Computed example of a mutant assay.
Amino acid sequence: MVCIDLNGDLGESFGRYTIGHDQDILPFLSSANIACGFHAADPMVMAKTVRLAERYQVKIGAHPGFPDRVGFGRRVLQASPEEIANDVTYQIGALTAFTQAKKLHHVKPHGALYNVAAQDQRIAKAICEAIKAFDPDLILYGLANSALISEAEAVGLSYAQEVFADRHYHDDGTLVPRSEEDAVIRNEDEVVERVLAMVKEQRVKTINGRWIDLAPDTICLHGDHPHAVQFARKLTDGLKEHHIKIG
């Protein structure tokens, strides 16, 4: 049976006591990327989200981003590789402190930091080296076929090639920016069909109608969609119907 990890970006609340759809969507996930306070979250939200993930026995990962709460981490900030490495280390450490085991499973950069590192070898290297220095057993979650993956290989860091259920791709394998029209796919049936093609056929159709190859290890399911829980249920049902195990 084919097995695929299903991850979600969680703990991205700004209020100290709100966690959005997190509690309802966690039962469908096998891993969670939890905001570390730079683009969203605060200590109260981080603690509550970690406890929820532990309750559902979901693998916990850090979701570090640029220090940009106003822009939700989706704006590119000018920073040197050294600054980015230190910011990533700081955020991993902050989230680790809230876990019972004092250990994380993975690290997935957020938003603009993720997209920059997917194309900039220097930034990707800085992130991968920071993760490995913190804990060499951590797994990097990075955009499939990107600089994040090649740099993880170069430094000897384990990685999971990530694909996106509800995002369009350019022909070069990068994600269509959210600022562009049709970057996000809203039709649930289309999303399920795309995910099945990615997992079973290891390919995805770009926004221009071309097919590109990829070999996904993990699928990102965004939890900030207004119908996120309904969508998660439909996607997991679709995977199970095709004998694809989530784990």
Rank of each mutant, 00 (worst) to 15 (best):
A62D: 09
H63W: 08
P64D: 03
P64R: 05
F66K: 03
F66G: 08
D68P: 10
R69F: 04
R69W: 01
R69C: 08
R69A: 13
R69I: 15
G71Y: 03
G73V: 05
G73T: 09
G73H: 10
R74F: 02
R75N: 15
V76A: 10
L77Y: 11
L77T: 12
L77P: 10
Q78T: 14
Q78E: 15
Q78Y: 09
A79K: 15
A79P: 08
S80G: 08
P81Y: 10
P81N: 09
P81D: 09
E82R: 12
E82Y: 06
E82D: 14
E83A: 14
I84Y: 10
I84P: 11
A85N: 00
A85E: 02
D87S: 14
D87E: 15
V88A: 06
T89G: 04
T89F: 11
Y90A: 12
Y90F: 15
Q91F: 10
Q91C: 11
A94P: 03
L95P: 12
T96R: 14
F98K: 04
T99C: 13
T99I: 13
Q100T: 14
Q100N: 14
K102I: 03
K103E: 13
K103S: 13
K103G: 07
H105M: 03
H105K: 10
H105P: 02
H105Q: 07
H106A: 06
H106D: 12
K108C: 03
K108W: 03
P109D: 02
P109F: 08
H110A: 08
G111H: 03
A112P: 02
Y114K: 02
Y114C: 09
N115T: 04
N115M: 02
V116S: 02
V116G: 01
V116D: 00
A117F: 07
A117Q: 09
A117S: 15
A118G: 08
Q119E: 10
Q119F: 00
D120L: 11
Q121I: 13
R122D: 14
R122P: 01
R122Y: 14
I123P: 09
I123N: 08
I123E: 08
A124E: 06
A124K: 05
K125H: 12
A126H: 11
C128W: 00
E129M: 15
A130Y: 06
I131S: 08
I131A: 06
I131H: 11
K132G: 00
A133D: 11
A133M: 07
F134Q: 03
P136I: 02
P136Y: 00
P136A: 05
D137E: 14
I139Y: 03
I139E: 03
L140T: 01
L140H: 07
Y141F: 12
Y141V: 08
Y141S: 04
L143A: 06
L143D: 13
N145L: 11
N145Y: 07
A147Q: 14
L148A: 07
L148N: 14
I149S: 06
S150D: 11
S150A: 06
E151W: 00
A152F: 00
A152L: 05
E153F: 01
A154S: 15
A154R: 14
G156T: 05
G156C: 04
S158L: 01
Y159K: 01
Y159F: 15
A160H: 15
A165V: 14
A165L: 14
R167K: 10
R167C: 13
R167T: 13
R167F: 15
R167G: 13
